[in-house]
């Protein structure tokens, strides 16, 4: 039995009729066409499906969509302003932190959750914040570089 629910995704309201068993990742990808959120392991082990709910990183492959109605959902599509990239996206691009790119949206959102709280993270803090996101291409080295560079850029932006 479908239920009508309102979702707030990337600051826009969507009224959708969805089945109670539908996962957030399905609603985002299949109902809203926001395919930047990736499905990869299906058991919450890889972090590719990470989105932000009220600023906190959440695994959308383990989240029933109805449980997050009305909450503030941010997907990778919500970060750039037009063609202007968010500083974390810009840093990932410039530091070669993206190879196949399939884990990238989840990585960037996990990084955003960290940097929104802490603009001066240590290496260790970055690693811990991204420890739920698996990447098979990069060896994580340039991802760490990118997050630290983004922190610096955002910090300068916040305190010019």
């Amino acid at each position: 039995m479908k239920e009508i629910a309102t979702f707030m995704v990337n600051e826009k309201h969507y009224e959708l009729a969805i089945e109670p068993h539908m996962l957030l990742v399905e609603v985002l990808r299949d109902e809203l066409g926001l395919t930047g959120t990736k499905h990869s392991c299906g058991i919450g082990s890889c972090g590719a499906c990470t989105v932000l709910i009220d600023g906190r990183p959440v695994l959308s492959c383990l989240t029933l969509a109805l449980t997050v109605r009305g909450k503030d959902i941010t997907t990778i599509e919500g970060l750039a302003q037009g063609t202007t990239l968010h500083p974390i996206q810009k840093a990932f691009v410039e530091h070669g932190a993206i190879q196949c790119g399939y884990c990238t949206p989840g990585m960037i959102l996990s990084a955003k959750a960290l940097l929104d709280k802490n603009l001066n993270p240590t290496d260790k803090e970055v690693k811990h914040a991204l420890s739920g996101n698996l990447c098979r291409c990069t060896g994580y080295v340039k991802i760490i570089d990118a997050v630290l560079a983004a922190a610096e850029a955002m910090s300068k932006e916040a305190h010019p």
Binding site: L85, I98, T104
Partner: peptide
């Protein structure tokens, strides 16, 4: 910088899935 990096960073890149 790679020509495809921005597409991948923004969720704009289309994969088969």
């Amino acid at each position: 910088i790679q020509p495809d990096a921005a597409a991948k960073a923004t969720g704009n890149a289309i994969y088969v899935s």
